[in-house]
């Protein structure tokens, strides 16, 4: 049976207004809610599609975070077979390299045919996770994949390049793929199904090894984009802003 491992991470939800912590070098996480990394969500969908198409065992590994259980049960409701919560993550976000080291040790034992991960996450500061993982697992890696199919010991993957060029590539398995989008948009799973999973499935907890939080990269300042001098910011509520835009367009003779 094909073994597929997906790493799914929770990231800050951009629905909330981002605030910088008093330190000035990090986000203020106290108000922030987290949500599944969209690219990881596509990686999960791709794994489920592969399972449905030709059979596979899908394992989801997620570093612990608030709400990670709900997220994992949701993947189970979609069809994931094994749920693993990686514990021992501290307050501070570990570097992707040390996360990759812990994950690589775990994943090696699973002997997967395919490791899928979202190609990026918007809180990746210390490099993308997937290529680092591929290096540690000594597997080939391709990123920005939109669609995978399995054929014997090989995977066929599609990758879009700038300029509208599409490449179809063959990859020897086992391999790590950085998913940009799944073939089909991530599916909806009914809450009652998720709730059913909560009663019928369990989440394995695996303690991570010591994680590094510092790398050679030091954040000196984190800040929200500032308006450049040549830009004019329109202030006010929706209605006022809309009125201003209308009058600007009128002045330009476009309306």
């Amino acid at each position: 049976m094909t073994e597929i491992v997906v790493i799914a991470r929770l990231v800050p939800d951009l629905v909330e207004e981002l605030e910088i912590a008093p330190s000035g070098t990090a986000l203020d996480l106290s108000w922030l809610r987290v949500i599944i990394n969209e690219f990881d969500n596509h990686a999960i969908e791709q794994a489920i599609i592969l399972k449905e198409r030709s059979g596979a065992t899908v394992t989801i590994i997620s570093p612990e975070a608030e709400g990670v259980e709900d997220m994992l049960f949701t993947t189970a409701a979609k069809g994931a077979d094994r749920l693993i919560k990686l514990t021992g993550i501290g307050e501070e976000k570990p570097t992707n390299l040390s996360l990759a080291q812990t994950l690589a040790t775990m994943i090696k034992e699973m002997n997967p045919d395919l490791v899928l991960n979202g190609v990026q996450a918007h809180d990746d500061i210390t490099g993308d996770l997937a290529p680092q993982l591929a290096q540690l697992l000594d597997m080939p890696y391709v990123g920005y994949i939109s669609g995978v199919s399995l054929d014997g010991g090989k995977a066929k993957a599609y990758k879009e390049y700038p300029g509208g060029i599409l490449a179809e590539m063959e990859i020897n398995l086992p391999a790590v793929l950085g998913i940009q989008s799944s073939e089909e948009p991530p599916r909806y799973v009914a809450i009652s199904k998720v709730r059913q999973m909560m009663n019928s499935t369990s989440i394995e907890e695996i303690q991570s090894s010591e994680l590094e939080t510092e790398s050679g990269v030091v954040i000196k300042r984190m800040y929200l984009p500032e308006a450049a001098e040549r830009a004019e910011m329109l202030e006010g509520d929706e209605k006022e802003v809309a009125t201003k835009i209308t009058s600007i367009l009128q002045d330009l003779g476009l309306l």
């Binding site: 629905v15 949500i35 948009p185 599916r187 909806y188 799973v189 009914a190 809450i191 009652s192 199904k193």
Partner: peptide, 21 residues
């Protein structure tokens, strides 16, 4: 239909939002 995921993408977005937020 909902259990089987046979819903259109707009409805899917709305339900996902309702579940999330």
């Amino acid at each position: 239909l909902v259990i089987e995921g046979m819903i259109d993408s707009e409805l899917q977005d709305a339900l996902t939002n309702l579940g999330q937020y």
